[in-house]
């Protein structure tokens, strides 16, 4: 039996427990869009941003972000360039192929200029290759860490090359609640400070923004469904114990449990951190910020001697991975030549 929308009486499609409302299709879309605008305006996310590289995986969060960014581009006065990465994850699921297809379909539908970076063609390895051969090549990081380094490097590099003011990623409210909890637990202050809707650029870094930070994971999914956005809903085949392993999965589940019991828990948790705790931490940290994320990054970093991108070491983490992969490739070539 249909449930009525609290605003207009039409059949409701969802219940927003933290506002004690049930909303129909139109009013839910309106509600989500209003929250998107409210959050980004409060934290001045689009201030001085004229060109955004939207990093889209093909999942519901980044695609909902892309549609929302597109919907309000003329309001805030920025242009969007889409970026998606073919990470070469297959494992019989065609995971990357399907993800890239979903991203490209939306770029085309919205008539957004876009770039597809093929990791194998551009940089000579795939994430599947690292999973299978990484240890033997001396890459000790877990595959998810290599994947993260790879994505962050490519996003930053392409954003700089495309002259963008910011890279936008689809981190949602559940992600931020989890990251804040984890970093608080570990006392990782510099990581904790990064949990903010906008991080300044400078020193070879493009600014980073998280425009859907105030939307629950369920809301980005509902927004995608209601807007007929075709997204890839499979999970990465390399996730063996959930995102970030058993500990992270447990934290995520506990936070969901609290949300179920106390609707609005995650929203209050994240906003309390951003509004009241982070400002107290920023003044004592190496990373500056004047509250609206517009001051330059104050960490002084050197440059990678291979690629010239910012790095705390002589060779950046990305080039270090690449050099191990290409070393193996050149060894194989030498052996086949009989050198």
């Amino acid at each position: 039996m249909a449930v009525k929308c609290s605003r207009c009486g039409k059949p409701a499609v969802a219940e927003i427990r933290y506002t004690r409302s049930r909303l129909c299709r139109e009013h839910l879309i309106e509600f989500i869009e209003r929250r998107f605008r409210k959050g980004n305006e409060e934290f001045k996310v689009f201030k001085n941003i004229r060109r955004i590289v939207a990093a889209v995986s093909g999942g519901k969060d980044s695609l909902a972000m892309l549609y929302l960014l597109h919907r309000f581009s003329s309001v805030y006065g920025y242009e969007i360039i889409g970026l998606t990465i073919d990470l070469g994850i297959d494992r019989g699921k065609e995971y990357s192929t399907k993800s890239v297809e979903a991203a490209v379909e939306s770029f085309k539908k919205l008539d957004i200029e876009y770039v597809v970076v093929d990791l194998s063609r551009e940089y000579g390895y795939t994430i599947d290759f690292i999973r299978d051969r990484g240890r033997r090549l001396g890459i000790r990081r877990p595959v998810c860490s290599v994947c993260g380094i790879t994505k962050r490097y490519i996003m930053n590099r392409f954003a700089l090359e495309l002259g963008a003011d910011a890279v936008a990623t689809g981190h949602n409210l559940n992600d931020l609640a989890q990251f804040i909890f984890t970093n608080m637990y570990g006392g990782h202050i510099d990581e904790l400070i990064k949990m903010y809707p906008k991080l300044p650029g400078g020193n070879g870094f493009t600014a980073k923004i998280k425009p859907v930070f105030m939307l629950y994971e369920k809301e980005t999914t509902l927004y995608s469904i209601l807007n007929n956005i075709r997204f890839h809903h499979d999970t990465c085949p390399h996730l063996e114990n959930g995102i970030g392993g058993r500990f992270q999965t447990a934290i995520r589940e506990k936070l969901e449990q609290l949300e179920e019991e106390f609707p609005g828990f995650m929203l209050n948790y994240v906003l309390t951190y951003m509004r009241r705790i982070r400002p107290l931490m920023v003044s004592g940290s190496s990373m500056g910020g004047d509250g609206d994320g517009d001051s330059g990054e104050k960490i002084s970093v050197g440059r990678c001697r291979i690629c010239g991108m910012p790095s705390l070491r002589d060779v950046c983490a990305f080039c270090s991975i690449r050099s191990r992969v290409s070393l193996k490739v050149s060894e194989t070539i030498s052996r086949s030549r009989g050198d």
């Binding site: 998606t84 996003m155 994971e217 809903h233 999970t235």
Partner: peptide, 8 residues
Amino acid sequence: LPVVSGGL
């Protein structure tokens, strides 16, 4: 439909 996923 579960809403959890992993991506960029």
